[in-house]
Design a protein around this nucleic acid. Structure first.
Lengths: 151, 151
DNA sequence: AGAAAACCTAGAAAAATGGTCGGGATTAAA
DNA sequence: TTTAATCCCGACCATTTTTCTAGGTTTTCT
């Protein structure tokens, strides 16, 4: 029941972009430095987010990345789903699972995983980058500095 | 965001024991067969649950395993925690984490993981083996058979 | 005694994680 | 037009975790 660094790094990077929203393209290197993530590794993660249409890229010198939509339009769930795959404590309740498992109707434990999946989705889909941006602004006003740093 | 087979197999096995509660000790082999789990593997999982005090064992011929408490006293959360470790989408919100990460106060993403952890715990702690047993009884009355089988 | 079962430990095979590396393509600025 | 910054892409790799397998020892019942 743990997220990998993919999801966590991805959210951190996207929050970084949200905090720089409206300021043009942000080079990956600067994100990686602020968030203390390997640049090469982050490059792989952001490629996924780009292909998913969550960020846009600007190539060439003075290029970089920027959010493809407004911060309010992107949720943590959007990011996690791209980087960690569909939210599903068990395969049989995967969000993109058409056939599901063939014993779902008879299966008791299925109920647990379904309930859990719904609960997780609800939390992650309820938090937008704009929400986090507001939190960061609040924290900053209280004199806190390290609002971006995290494991 | 997926449970490993440890957690899922563990819950299935414990539900199997719950459905046989009051009938003495149940040999591991029969659980493994009903649940379609490798007996050797399940042995390792149930050893953890035994050491955690969730099941008791009876050695020797006609031995086996049985729940150490009433089904109503054991929650899915109890089982998952033993087999998968503390419920924590990120280390900084681990339930047994004293020091936490030293930037928690300044950290925005921490809020996400904390909220998520609480939501997951709430679901898993709210479901007892007795609840599942009732579901199984209901399903059985409706003529369903495979109530134990699952991925 | 013999069989059935829990108990224990070592490791193997496969997958996932968390990177690293090298080069190529594109573009703004000097 | 050159150069430097930057994205883009694919390959590779070490480590850890997961999921089992195999084999033995001990205990207890008939």
């Amino acid at each position: 029941m743990k997220l990998s660094t993919k999801g966590r790094y991805g959210v951190k990077a996207m929050l970084d972009l949200a905090l720089n929203y409206g300021e043009g393209s942000i080079p990956l290197r600067s994100i990686a430095e602020r968030q203390d993530i390997s640049e090469n590794y982050l490059e792989q993660l952001i490629a996924v987010l780009r292909k998913a249409g969550l960020v846009n890229s600007v190539r060439g010198a003075y290029g970089g990345y920027l959010l493809a939509k407004e911060p309010a339009e992107i949720t943590v769930g959007d990011i996690i789903r791209e980087l960690e795959g569909p939210i599903a404590p068990a395969d049989c309740v995967a969000e993109d699972n058409q056939e599901s498992c063939n014993k779902v109707e008879d299966c008791i434990t299925h109920l647990i995983w379904k309930e859990l999946q719904e609960s997780i989705s609800e939390v992650l889909d309820s938090i937008s980058l704009e929400d986090l941006r507001q939190e960061a602004i609040n924290a900053r006003q209280k004199g806190k500095s390290g609002y971006l740093y995290h494991i």
